[in-house]
């Protein structure tokens, strides 16, 4: 099981957003993409996720070139992007298939995992920014993606919740791709750093 990014480039009109990015993620790895605001981190993630297909290069998932949205990928966005007309539990079960009861049952487990048991019937307008992002995380986890793309999703969370959720994600996911701009602000524009971690031992 692997995710390979090969020479991915993207231009907006005549301006290069990302240029020849390549890396390879094996099972159990975390890849951190570091760079200042506007250097193309989110652009790269959109290309990897298949939300943007107008790039050059290849995104190879488990040995197959993929230029569309794949259910093996999950995406946690910078903003929670919850559907305001759906309750918390229906937001979490949004991407699930099956009967309503089955979907709600799975969603309830993940809501419990992110510490939002009891908030199932709330609507997004009733949540704080941190709670909304936790719902978004539960929504991404509940479909059991093999690769999880995170676009600075923890920026709105308090330090304790942030640590708790990072631990949770490490326990669950074999491969995790994340941007950590705020923690590594010294990295210059368009810099790219590979961080390889194997399990929880090295994450500290």
């Amino acid at each position: 099981m692997s995710l390979q990014i090969r020479n991915v480039s993207k231009e907006f009109e005549s301006r290069k957003a990302i240029s020849n990015i390549s890396f390879h993620a094996e099972s159990g790895e975390i890849i951190g993409i570091l760079g200042t605001s506007g250097c193309g981190k989110s652009t790269l993630l959109r290309a990897v996720s298949g939300l943007d297909t107008s790039y050059t290069g290849d995104v190879i998932i488990d040995g197959e070139v993929c230029n569309h949205v794949d259910e093996k990928l999950g995406f946690i966005f910078q903003q929670p992007r919850l559907m305001p007309w759906l309750s918390v539990i229906d937001n979490v079960s949004f991407g699930l298939k099956g009967t309503k009861e089955e979907k709600r049952s799975s969603a309830a487990k993940y809501l419990d995992l992110v510490g939002l048991k009891g908030n199932e019937k709330d609507f997004p307008k009733q949540l704080s920014g941190g709670m909304a992002q936790r719902v978004a995380i539960a929504r991404a986890l509940v479909t059991s993606p093999q690769y999880l793309l995170l676009d600075e999703p923890f920026s709105a969370l308090d330090a304790f919740t942030k640590m708790k959720l990072q631990d949770l994600l490490l326990e669950i996911w074999e491969s995790l791709l994340m941007t950590l701009k705020k923690r590594y602000t010294f990295v210059t524009d368009s810099s790219f750093l590979r961080v390889s971690l194997e399990g929880k031992k090295k994450k500290s």
Partner: peptide, 12 residues
């Protein structure tokens, strides 16, 4: 909101 459409697309 285009961002909500993208969420839908991510779920196929």
């Amino acid at each position: 909101d285009r961002q909500l459409i993208e969420v839908g697309k991510m779920y196929g």
